[in-house]
């Protein structure tokens, strides 16, 4: 039985956690306090805001009489467009996360199967998609999927942004599968033994006893993955989806004002920070809470 041998490796859990986090887990207790741990803090956001203000000021200083629109005016004019585009990024991240999680749980179950071929396929798919660059997967989806397809004579369009979302869902799927495998492996073997001794079947143990305990452990790395995915949605700009990066480029070329470049991109950065920062903080809080309880 595989699960029994790969017991209790708490380090196995985080897939995409920061290095410091990984080092502090599973080692001797003494070590964990020696490593400085960097965390996203509010002042990181203030720093970004500072960059934005600084370059806005310098853009304002560079203002020449033949350029009528001020930076503030440009911001006001384009703000609705950029915000709408950012909402689009978030929609893509939500969709990709949902699809990726559903598929990833399926893949994880395959990977944990005692049947060898099923396990092997699950393992291979996970490894493949986890170790392929996200951008390459995105390109594959863009160029391999048709732009429309027919079901029962009805032609369903398959727009670029859906293809991009699928492309982003693939690595999410593999990472979710891996998070799940790690979480299952981190459950002490005694749980399996006790459940087996009570005559539960393997399936009952997996779904009734092991996985419910895993959800708690999976939540922090899963949320971490979501934050990473959200930031990765800008990759879709490379394949021409009208998300916030693409729109910013368009705005900048329409304005044709080099001094606007840095303020506008700083603004985009700030948008992502404002969205991802609370997620990161909440993840940290969860991790801390679980670390205390375990």
């Amino acid at each position: 039985m595989k699960s029994r041998n790969s017991v209790a490796k708490p380090t196995d859990l985080p897939v995409l956690m920061p290095i410091a986090e990984r080092l502090t887990r599973g080692r001797g207790i003494g070590l964990s306090y020696d490593i400085p741990r960097l965390q996203l803090r509010a002042w990181h956001g203030l720093f970004l805001l500072g960059v934005l203000v600084f370059f806005s000021a310098s853009a304002w200083a560079q203002q020449s009489p033949d350029h009528p629109a001020t930076l503030a005016q440009a911001f006001i004019r384009w703000m609705p467009l950029l915000l709408k585009a950012f909402v689009f990024n978030i929609v893509m991240s939500f969709l990709a996360m949902s699809l990726g999680t559903i598929a990833g749980v399926g893949l994880g179950v395959m990977q944990l199967s005692p049947t060898r071929p099923t396990h092997a396929v699950g393992w291979f798919v996970t490894q493949f998609f986890r170790n392929a660059p996200w951008l390459v997967l995105l390109f594959f989806c863009m160029f391999l999927l048709p732009f429309r397809f027919s079901v029962f004579g009805v032609t369903v369009p398959f727009p670029d942004w859906i293809k991009a979302t699928l492309g982003l869902a693939l690595p999410v799927m593999a990472n979710v599968a891996e998070i799940m495998r790690g979480a299952v492996a981190s459950i002490p073997s005694g749980q399996w033994e006790a459940a087996h001794s009570l005559a539960f079947s393997r399936r009952q143990i997996m779904f009734g006893i092991i996985l419910p305990q895993c959800i708690r452990r999976m939540l922090p790395p899963w949320m971490n993955l979501y934050a990473i995915l959200t930031m990765a949605t800008v990759l879709a700009s490379i394949v021409g989806v009208s998300e916030v990066m693409t729109q910013t480029q368009r705005v900048l070329s329409a304005e044709n004002r080099p001094e606007f470049i840095v303020p506008f991109y700083a603004f985009v950065l700030l948008l992502f920070f404002v969205y991802c920062y609370p997620i990161a903080r909440y993840t940290q809080k969860l991790e801390l809470r679980y670390a205390v309880r375990d």
């Binding site: 002490p188 005694g190 749980q191 033994e193 006790a194 459940a195 087996h196 001794s197 009570l198 005559a199 006893i209 305990q213």
Partner: peptide
Amino acid sequence: RKKVGMVFQQYNLF
């Protein structure tokens, strides 16, 4: 296993 109950050193409660 329905006929044989087992108790472990580490309790192993769920």
